[in-house]
Write a protein that binds this DNA or RNA. Structure first.
Lengths: 253, 253
DNA sequence: TCGCGCGCTTGATCGGGGTCAAGGCGGGGC
DNA sequence: GCCCCGCCTTGACCCCGATCAAGCGCGCGA
């Protein structure tokens, strides 16, 4: 069980994951990992959910999946590739809000204003599932698990967003960033302790509130102290525990 | 119409607010401002919503409404006073996540883990409404407006959280913080251009990622340049446009 | 093949704001 | 009244990381 799929040049293996006793599985059709469990499709209305889905793509590097100011009409699940979401302030500077890996949902926070609050840009070749939102919301009122999953994802995003504020030093921020990316890849069946930084250094810097030069320097320092090895955009962790120690300023437990 | 109520020493006047053509009103029973509209109670099930509510308090300064690690069982709406939410990292340092004014909802982000991820502490005498959460979620599946309002509030929190990251200089952060607080007070019927900082400088500093000394210095600089007047914890804006100019690094429109 | 440009790295300098330290101010308890 | 303690302010110093600048390597189009 578990099948593999090519994802932006990497091999992704989506295995069933057991963590709380249930048999979870990444659903390649709807990308609703923890809703689309092995409980049987009809029980939680996945047939209906799957009917809502349109597959879209591929988007090429730099293409927009949606743009700030577009009327909110759908949420998207990333199926392959990496997407960044960003805003442009009135001086024209870009502010990156997040990077989104396969299996993650984007656009959900637009419910707030009915307008997408940011751009979603492909960082490499990207495929997505599109969920028409009014239909998804209606489905959520009928299927509590889907409502709960939407709540859960929204509240998780809050945690992620507020977590970013606290890392103070450049080392802490970058260590936390790498560990976070790594954990998200791993949760989706990618090899542990190795990851691809699909975004340029300048995007990482922007996201972390640092200068690109600092990102470069810190990565070099991490490599010199044996924490990891950098080869262009590929990173392999040599001492994850040490890295975790550097990033220790993170959330309790 | 519009009634007044004493709120931690200030007079709050809750007037009906008309902004999108509907007659909105702050509902003093359920605190669900934009759900509890003048559309008539039965239409959106507010009788049921009101049945879920327990009033609680008063909490005294320093009291906890809930604590990190408590099992998630309810969300709370602040009715009077100011609440801060914070986490404690493993080195024992406090990290403040937000300040919550009357009419705002806290605890909703606990859905994510079923455990409150933070402490909620009264900064002055505080009263709250308590909504048993399983019941509220069930109600949300039956009443789409309530589901939508919960989505809306969650996604708004994301916006607020990610907004905090971007202000870079101390001046920008503090200006944005003051304008934000002021707008939230004003939206609830308090006098415009005046606000009370119910939290100590050290809490503001913590929240903004600054030192308390810096908060002090920047406030003084703002006062010296005629932007506002500080008297202890009371602040009155003298030049809101100028302050907005200082904080211009905020979201597009 | 060469040249160009972009992304990345490394070095040198500078400034915003943290930290340490020393008062002021005000309120509550006795 | 007094003192005490917590909050706030102001000053002096210094460090982290931004900025400026230069050079490197690689991919791509002509």
């Amino acid at each position: 069980m578990g099948y593999s799929e090519s994802t932006g040049g990497r091999k992704a293996v989506f295995n069933p994951i057991a963590d709380d006793g249930n048999e979870y599985k990444f659903c390649s059709t709807c990308a609703f990992g923890s809703v689309c469990v092995g409980h049987g499709v009809d029980k939680i209305g996945l047939t209906e959910l799957h009917c809502l889905v349109e597959h879209a793509g591929p988007f090429r590097t730099g293409d927009a999946i949606f743009r700030h100011g577009d009327r909110f009409s759908a949420v998207y699940a990333v199926r392959a590739g990496t997407v960044k979401t960003s805003q442009v302030d009135r001086e024209g500077r870009e502010l990156i809000l997040g990077f989104h890996l396969p299996g993650e949902l984007i656009g959900l926070n637009a419910i707030h204003t009915e307008i997408y609050p940011c751009d979603a840009i492909a960082l490499e070749t990207v495929e997505v599932c599109r969920f028409s939102f009014p239909a998804l919301a209606t489905l959520a009122t009928r299927i509590p698990q889907i409502q709960k999953e939407l709540f859960r994802r929204l509240s998780k995003d809050i945690g992620d967003a507020s977590q970013r504020i606290q890392e103070s030093t450049a080392d802490e921020r970058l260590a936390a960033f790498i560990l976070n990316l790594c954990a998200r890849y791993e949760a989706r069946g990618f090899a542990a302790n190795a990851l691809r930084l699909s975004m340029p250094r300048s995007d990482i810097a922007n996201y972390l509130g640092l200068a690109a030069e600092t990102v470069s320097r810190v990565l070099r320092r991490f490599q010199d102290s044996g924490l990891l090895v950098v080869e262009g955009r590929e990173v392999s962790l040599k001492n994850p525990a040490g890295l975790r120690e550097v990033a220790r300023n993170i959330l309790p437990d």
